[in-house]
């Protein structure tokens, strides 16, 4: 009986997903927004792994979660590079300020 039921895992993923969304929407600091995105990725990963627990024939869930991580790593690398570039240009990473700066 060391089996974890599916529904709680999915609900946990949903909670994390919504918290990630909330972070993306509400935060003004670009890096915090990036963190929210990572959180969303992880929520998705959790779902994939949970489904894989119940259908482990081809291990698709786990393989996909690995791919998701690869993409997430690449994404965060590029995103951080962009953030640094934006910072060197605008001298800020505050999204609202950047918007005002572009409103020439």
């Amino acid at each position: 009986m060391n089996n974890i039921p599916l529904i709680p895992v999915l609900l946990l993923g949903a909670v994390l997903f919504c918290l990630g969304i909330l972070a993306v929407i509400t935060k003004r600091h670009a890096i915090v927004v990036l963190m929210g995105i990572e959180l969303i990725f992880n929520a998705a990963n959790l779902n994939l792994v949970a489904f894989n627990r119940h259908q482990p024939d081809l291990m698709q869930g786990q393989v996909f979660s690995v791919f998701v991580m690869v993409i997430a790593a690449a994404e965060s690398a590029v995103a951080l590079a962009i953030i640094l570039k934006v910072y060197s240009y605008f001298k800020t990473v505050n999204l609202d300020q950047i918007r005002h700066e572009t409103d020439v």
Binding site: I21, V24, I25, T26, L95, D96, R99, T102, D103
Partner: peptide, 12 residues
């Protein structure tokens, strides 16, 4: 409106 976060809200 140029706010990337409100775009996100609308897509959501």
């Amino acid at each position: 409106n140029g706010k990337v976060q409100s775009y996100y809200i609308f897509s959501l």
